[in-house]
Nucleic acid binder design. Sequence first.
DNA 1: AAGTTAGGTGACCATTTGGTCACCTGTCAA
DNA 2: TTGACAGGTGACCAAATGGTCACCTAACTT
Lengths: 105, 105
Amino acid sequence: MTDDDRVFKALADPSRRFLLDLLFARDGRTLTELESELEMTRFGVAKHLRVLEEAGLVVVRRSGREKLHFLNPIPIRQIHDRWIDKFTEQHVTALIDLKHTLEES
Amino acid sequence: MTDDDRVFKALADPSRRFLLDLLFARDGRTLTELESELEMTRFGVAKHLRVLEEAGLVVVRRSGREKLHFLNPIPIRQIHDRWIDKFTEQHVTALIDLKHTLEES
DNA sequence: AAGTTAGGTGACCATTTGGTCACCTGTCAA
DNA sequence: TTGACAGGTGACCAAATGGTCACCTAACTT
């Protein structure tokens, strides 16, 4: 399996995306802490975190018996750069900003 | 199934990512034209294109009996914005640019 | 009108994937 | 040092996914 295969497969599951959302909101959480936010057993969450880790979307640091999880944004940016060139990026961000502006009013 | 579920599921398959690569290189191709680039039957390719279309990653325009396919970058940008804030974006792009600079030398 | 070309549909099968469980290792606290 | 706590492993099962095929419709060509 290639690197980018791992990244996209990892992102394909809603529980894993929710874990990334949690880490985006606040980094450095343990398995047990993350587990309490999902309706799933610890084993399920651990399995998902491992998939995210192997994809490089999450990096971990051990601290005693705890394992702290951090979000790594680099693979996400690389997805962006694969299909959006600098020129297109300007148009797309302008469109999305416009959409937000309209939704606020 | 939610919208973003469709997008991520669509991106999870290497053949579909390759189709996006092809459309990124050149837009507006037909099924038959795309089919010739993959080692797969027409039915397989058609199925993949439908998944991409339902995810909004590809938009189509009919022209007689032909169906032209175009890449839509907006969902890709939204993935980026979900986990990379403006502040982090600066660091990440700087890191990636640095990586490219180093690799050239 | 007849043949050809572009594309669509529903069924089918092999493989992968998400989630759980029984059981195990390592670390901290009283 | 004994128990509680944080996490890991391998097997297992139900459900989803990738790909093919037989068969179909619609549009262009001569």
